[in-house]
């Protein structure tokens, strides 16, 4: 799909994000929380990587680190092979254009006092993406891409429904002509019937514009629908990743299996594995495997030694001492 098959579009090498909590002006106070703990992940051009996990898994934080919306605390981040982990805001500017983010709540990220036209036109003018006399045509084109009538350009955000607002959010990201879009829970605030429309829109846009996505969601059905590859996160680390259909059909990590079995189905099928308890506190993560406190199969080894994410057959990687047989 892209000329260089050898270089991923975006690559994270042992990327970490730490927060300090309870820090005062006293030196040495406060404790570090590892929201994302040494995550290595490559995003290849043309694929859609689905990031799944429950709240506290670090999937949103990782998404924001990948676009350098957050500064990263450790590891490296490379865009088309270029190290951007320490890049300054000025250096990032050309890359920011190629990497756009879409958020969960479209109304929170749209300025209520500005018309859609102004919101979409501004980045075009600022980044000099199009000459001034072509902006009007481009706006119409963008509205067409996201399936909204051109007349809506002159409306304000509050005149739209949730689904339409999300379409405008998408149009704004597309205005920059990005290569990569990181979408953080883009459909979870929408009604089911509207959610399907927006999921289809993401698929259409990928085909028409050759986009690469990192798609963050807690809804496994949605992730399965849009992703070519899925990354399962738990407590700031990747526990499993692999090709979508095979991962859903035969999860290798006990957490992935429990997550899949917990989804309510329209037709009752199979035994449900109900996990005990809650996610451990990120302030005090388990010494061994992050999932060992809730894993029905945990052994002493699991409780004492953290398994590494190891690549297996068919591009599947699992961080588990005793992965489930497929």
């Amino acid at each position: 799909m892209t000329p260089s098959k050898a270089t991923p579009l975006l690559e994270a090498r042992e990327l970490s994000k730490r927060y300090m909590v309870g820090k005062t002006f006293m030196p040495g106070s406060g404790r570090a929380v590892h929201a994302v703990d040494k995550v290595s992940l490559s995003v290849w051009a043309g694929e859609t990587v689905g990031l799944v996990g429950e709240s506290g898994s670090g999937k949103s934080t990782l998404g924001r680190c990948l676009t350098r919306l957050y500064d990263i605390s450790g590891g490296q981040l490379l865009y088309e092979g270029e190290d951007i982990s320490e890049a300054t805001a000025r250096e990032l500017l050309p890359i920011r254009r190629k990497m756009q983010m879409i958020f969960q709540d479209p109304s929170a990220s749209l300025n209520p006092r500005r018309r859609v036209r102004d919101m979409l036109a501004e980045p075009l003018a600022v980044h000099k993406i199009r000459p001034r006399n072509e902006i009007g045509d481009r706006l119409a084109e963008l509205m067409g891409l996201v399936g909204l009538p051109v007349e809506y350009l002159d409306r304000y955000p509050h005149e739209f429904s949730g689904g339409q607002r999300q379409r405008i959010g998408i149009a704004r990201a597309l205005a920059m002509e990005p290569q990569l879009i990181v979408a953080d829970e883009p459909v979870s605030a929408l009604d089911v019937s509207v959610q399907a429309q927006v999921v289809n829109l993401f698929a259409d846009l990928r085909e028409r514009l050759n986009l690469t996505y990192v798609f963050i969601a807690h809804d496994l059905g949605v992730v399965r629908q849009v992703s070519t590859r899925v990354v399962v996160m738990y407590l700031g680390t990747i526990v499993e990743m692999g090709e979508t259909e095979s991962l859903f059909a035969a999860p290798a990590h006990p957490y992935t299996r429990a997550l899949l079995s917990a989804i309510p189905r329209l037709s009752a099928s199979g035994e449900r594995i109900v996990l005990e308890g809650d996610l451990p506190s990120p302030l005090d993560p388990p010494k061994g495997c992050v999932f060992s406190t809730r894993c029905p199969l945990a052994t002493d080894l699991c409780r004492n030694e953290r398994p590494k994410l190891t690549a297996g057959a068919n591009g599947r990687s699992v961080a588990c001492h005793t992965p489930l047989a497929s």
């Binding site: 019937s193 399907a196 429309q197 999921v199 289809n200 059905g221 189905r265």
Partner: peptide, 16 residues
């Protein structure tokens, strides 16, 4: 319109 988690993956989700 609920994306399925098992079985075949529809090319497009039926939507309203």
């Amino acid at each position: 319109s609920i994306p399925p988690v098992e079985g075949p993956r529809p090319h497009r989700l039926p939507s309203i």
